[in-house]
Design a protein around this nucleic acid. Structure first.
Length: 338
DNA sequence: TAAGCGTGGCA
DNA sequence: TTGCCAAGCTT
């Protein structure tokens, strides 16, 4: 496996260069960003964070709002809140140095079983299992673990830990993930070039794509709301959402409450931030969150600067801090102008 | 244990 | 267009 990794490992911005010691700050930051998120999506965010906050002390000193604004678009915003809390704790309680053992790592906000194992192995070369979705797939196929997830996790973890070598545990952890990402893929795995073809039980049985067995998904309900795009001399009215829950702490375009049924126009307009001359735009912004679909209509109005209601007035050319669903609103408004 | 929590790519 | 799914954690 290590020989395969030496030949085929991916070049990624957070990986240490040949012969260099890994930077625990970079390892941790990348692992948090990579939770449930693709490598391609993470790359620009990782670069942006390191450029803006080169050390964990810099990140700890930053206001939470600045961290959230820079995380905007990456999703799962509790990660950004935990990231900042973790940085503060590392600086305050650990002298700015990451602990190297899994048990202590798991006490830190945003670090669970997988991430603790990944940091211990990759940053400190500790013998530890880092079992993510890739590893679950690779190991359940090779050992033919046909118990459904999440019950299979215990067996998968034990099988993985038994394979971790005494030396280069970090490279081994990354090699499993690279194998899962590039060869042992969800669909159409490339068994013909897999270093484990000869020992993989699922391959021998021709059952690769049946594993791992996952529980059925639930249907997503639809929720509805009307957003209020209020412009004044190049600025738009935004507000910051409550600190926890969906899009917690993120900027948003003010809206009516999000409900199970669409409100009629008059009822929705009663929630507008002021009594301006609102025009409801054609079309609907559609966005899918983790557990529901969202249909958002948009109302638009212009007011003079001296009539601005209280709130956060942001230049329309500076909307980088908006989460994706709100960027879709901005995009729809821009399109209607053209 | 199960539910809440984003987003983008791809079949 | 729709559903599936990716380097999971918290409550």
């Amino acid at each position: 496996m290590l020989a395969w990794y030496d030949r085929h490992q991916r070049v990624l911005p957070w990986r240490a260069r040949e012969g260099k010691a890994p930077d625990p700050y970079h390892v941790w930051l990348s692992e948090i960003m990579l939770q449930q998120t693709t490598v391609q999506a993470v790359k620009p965010y990782f670069e942006g964070f390191v450029a803006c906050w080169p050390t964990i002390e810099d990140l700890a000193k930053a206001p939470l709002e600045a961290v959230l604004d820079r995380w905007a678009g990456l999703g799962y915003y509790a990660r950004a809140r935990n990231l900042h809390a973790c940085a503060c704790k590392i600086v305050a309680d650990f002298g700015g140095r990451f602990p190297s053992d899994e048990k202590t790592l798991k006490t830190l906000p945003g670090i669970g079983d997988y991430t603790a194992g990944a940091i211990a192995a990759i940053a400190f070369d500790k013998v530890a299992a880092a079992v993510d979705g890739n590893v679950e797939r690779v190991i359940s196929r090779m050992r033919f673990i046909d118990e459904p997830l999440p019950k299979a996790k215990k067996a998968i973890r034990a099988e993985t830990l038994a394979l971790v070598p005494d030396r280069r545990a970090g490279d081994f952890a990354q090699s499993l993930m690279d194998l899962g990402a590039t060869i042992c893929t969800v669909r159409a795995p490339k068994c013909g070039i897999c270093p484990w073809e000869g020992v993989c039980i699922a391959h021998a049985k021709g059952r690769m794509e049946d594993l791992p067995i996952k529980p059925p998904k639930k249907r997503k309900p639809v929720r509805h709301a009307l957003a209020f795009w209020l412009e004044s001399e190049g600025d738009v009215l935004l507000r910051r959402r409550p600190a926890k829950g969906l899009l917690g702490g993120m900027l948003e375009v003010p809206s009516s409450p999000w409900g199970d049924e669409p409100l009629d126009d008059d009822a929705a307009l009663a929630h507008a931030p002021n009594a301006a001359d609102w025009a409801i735009l054609e079309g609907t912004v559609r966005h899918t969150f983790t557990h529901f679909h969202f249909h958002l209509k948009v109302a638009r109005a212009h007011i003079r600067a001296d009539a601005r209601p209280d709130g956060l007035w942001v230049p329309m050319h500076d909307l980088d801090g908006l989460p994706t669903v709100m960027r879709k609103v901005a995009h729809m408004v821009q399109k209607q102008k053209a």
